[in-house]
């Protein structure tokens, strides 16, 4: 149970970072931490205690394996997270070229 609470704390750290930090790069790191927490949670769901890797060989019985589906799902999710991270960093580099700052309180040309 405690491991799920640690996972929740990791998620909360990410959310706090997104909501409270003023630096663009720190916000991006916060988004990353949130995604890692979500991925970790998904992996933990498929984990069984003392489980072994879900590789089926000829003479093995299907017993006490961890669930392979969350691992496949999280692999996709990590790739999506990577794409998002690259896009966010690219956009923030361009923002820095235009505004000469990473401070979101100074990046406020949109009104209304």
């Amino acid at each position: 149970m405690s491991i799920y609470i640690l996972c929740l704390i990791l998620f909360s750290v990410g959310l706090y970072c997104v909501l409270r930090k003023r630096n663009l790069i720190k916000i991006i790191i916060g988004v990353g931490i949130m995604e890692y927490a979500a991925n970790l949670f998904f992996i933990l769901i498929g984990y069984t205690k003392e489980g072994r890797s879900p590789i089926y060989a000829h003479d093995q019985v299907i017993k006490n394996m961890v669930d392979p589906l969350p691992q496949a799902v999280v692999l996709t999710s990590i790739v999506l997270g990577l794409a998002l991270m690259l896009l966010l960093v690219a956009i923030s580099i361009r923002i820095y070229e235009k505004y000469k700052t990473f401070d979101i309180t100074k990046i406020n040309r949109l009104k209304g």
């Binding site: 956009i91 923030s92 361009r94 923002i95 235009k98 990046i107 406020n108 040309r109």
Partner: peptide, 10 residues
């Protein structure tokens, strides 16, 4: 690639 567009996109 205007400054407002980048801000909105982020």
């Amino acid at each position: 690639n205007e400054s407002e567009a980048l801000e909105a996109s982020f």
